[in-house]
Write a protein that binds this DNA or RNA. Structure first.
Lengths: 335, 335
DNA sequence: TCAAAAGTGTTATCCTTACACCCATGT
DNA sequence: ACATGGGTGTAAGGATAACACTTTTGA
């Protein structure tokens, strides 16, 4: 029997025990930060993404995820999207040398409110707790010094030709000194830090690392198993998506001001935006409409309250909120 | 025990038999058409995508796929990318009412040559055999008449408010009469046709369909199980990707002319491009370089042979080959 | 000589980005 | 009055898309 023949359903599917679970990156946002829902029953266990076993009763994977996440957070999800299926053999490598494989299907979910039900051991935390180097809203974050240091060491240590290759790797993920920070490369950056060994889970997984175990201290928290990688995948996907699909609005209250919308986008993207241009871009795309109301809770001149134009979901599914395009200059600290 | 607690590895992973296989959309391209590798041992079995069971010996899913596809086609893959994990409960619905779930992890792979090994029951075929409505290189394809007819019937049949909703659905997938054909919406179009019931597998799966079984005749071939959906996912992904990543070159020979490159892009995208602008765009992006050689096999004036500048993979990973942006006019039949 | 394909030049238009500036409110 | 945020105008620069046109070969 040729290999290709084994594909027929029911033929050749004898496999060692495969366990499949669904892991969810559940995101909400307040103007001051992006939040992700994490689970930690007590301080002795590592923090984890909420996840649950795949259950047979659900017709589709999406429906399955939707139903148990809604049960967990206590209200309906605005948006659900499959991210990636993770299945490295070193997942749960600690669990003895058994030949079983653990598959994890990662999902991204967006919810409007950030209150979790009390009877579950879940809380909302800023995702920058796990990725402090991704928050460039107030200029270069402090951790970047240690990140650069680690990368420089990794590059310096390599022989001539390999050195060039490593330099390019680093440049793709972190950009050249004067490039604009490319917020979409969050996953690539995490993967580089993992590979170098600057992140503790690389040592825990027994991956071959350049850096010694002690170097893996980046003032950042890790997560259970490969959950930090799943979260990085979610961040990269979301940062990419807000540019060409109106997904930010899944995170906004029914009525909001332009600045609140801008702050939310900035929170997700981890960069600062130019206010006048942001407003115009959003306005020009026809993404929002006036409610007629105004609010004085601004700290300055009262602002008009706007709302998302739900029609655009049908009209122009490919319109997103404006973010600067890559390859321009690094964003300055100007307003 | 709360639901979130069940997430711990080894806890709560008791599942009905889950079978997991890897299905591959293996693409190559000649200037006259995009090719996908399909498997059909004899004419009694339905055509299928090559797929194989997930094996424990591979460290990563990508590595697993790579190794068995390379064995199948007989040479190295240029590019491999995970597409999506499919796990609808109605996969293999025909296989009795057992509670087991069949997961299928779809992959996209690009190869340079299109010769398959003789000892496997695989062949290269144009993907437009399965999606004739996706080939707009020579203007509107003939099947579109039947497609429109089917959609129109589905819309007309609905009551007032639902009608509006259906119109919008169709507009998103197929565009407005004067819009440029949006080649990226291939998956959305397939899903709409499935939902309406214009595609035979919708009836086979027992999905609720508007159209009668007899209407599911679109001069197009189907594939085993949900393989046509997986292929549609691959087409959409590839059509999107060529715009911002230099992936077309994975399909090109070492040296080629501008027109060969253009024809390949057109084959994948299913649309015609404007020649002078295409060349300039590619040139301007710095994606190619001169080899110094020329070829006279052009049918006209000899053309310079160019090659891909491999450096750009490191320099500017986010540069793709030019396709017109959506929302402009429909492409005319001009050169 | 003509068809077919290789190429070049140029322009109108739109989008993005940046800079400059005025407006309305609370303290 | 001044800080804070709301809001408008505009101009430079780049990218796109369309049009017109010349060049070089083989049949």
């Amino acid at each position: 029997m040729t290999r290709a023949t084994r594909q027929r359903p029911g033929v050749g599917t004898a496999q060692g025990g495969v366990t499949v679970d669904l892991s969810a990156v559940i995101v909400s946002a307040s103007p001051d930060g992006p939040r992700v829902l994490v689970h930690q029953p007590d301080t002795k266990h590592p923090v984890a993404l909420p996840s649950g076993p795949l259950e047979a009763r659900h017709r589709t994977l999406d429906a399955g995820l939707r139903s148990w996440v809604e049960e967990l957070v206590g209200y309906r999800l605005g948006y659900v999207e499959q991210l990636y299926t993770f299945g490295d053999a070193n997942r749960h490598a600690s669990a003895l040398g058994q030949p079983s494989r653990a598959l994890s299907i990662g999902y991204l979910a967006l919810v409007r409110e950030s209150r979790a039900r009390k009877d579950h051991d879940v809380t909302w935390v800023s995702w920058y707790r796990f990725f402090p180097w991704e928050d460039w809203r107030h200029g270069e974050p402090a951790v970047m010094a240690r990140v650069r240091e680690g990368i420089a060491g990794w590059i310096a240590e390599a022989p001539g030709d390999e050195r060039k290759h490593r330099e390019e790797r680093a440049r793709v993920a972190f950009g050249r000194p004067d490039d604009r920070w490319n917020e979409e490369m969050a996953l690539e950056r995490y993967e580089l830090l993992y590979e170098i060994g600057l992140v503790p889970e690389a040592h825990r997984d027994g991956a071959p690392c350049w850096a010694p175990r002690e170097a893996a201290i980046l003032e950042a928290e890790s997560l259970l198993a490969d959950h930090r990688r799943i979260l990085a995948t979610g961040i990269s996907r979301l940062r990419g998506k807000i540019k060409y699909r109106p997904v930010v609005f899944e995170l906004m209250p029914p009525r909001f001001t332009f600045l609140q919308l801008q702050r939310t986008v900035e929170a997700l993207a981890g960069i600062e935006l130019h206010k006048p241009n942001f407003r115009r871009l959003v306005e020009h795309q026809g993404l929002v409409e006036e409610t007629g109301a105004v609010t004085s809770n601004t700290g300055g001149r009262p602002a008009r309250l706007i709302r998302f134009r739900r029609d655009v979901l049908l009209e122009r599914p490919a319109s997103g909120v404006g973010l600067p395009t890559t390859n321009s200059r690094r964003n300055s600290t100007s307003n």
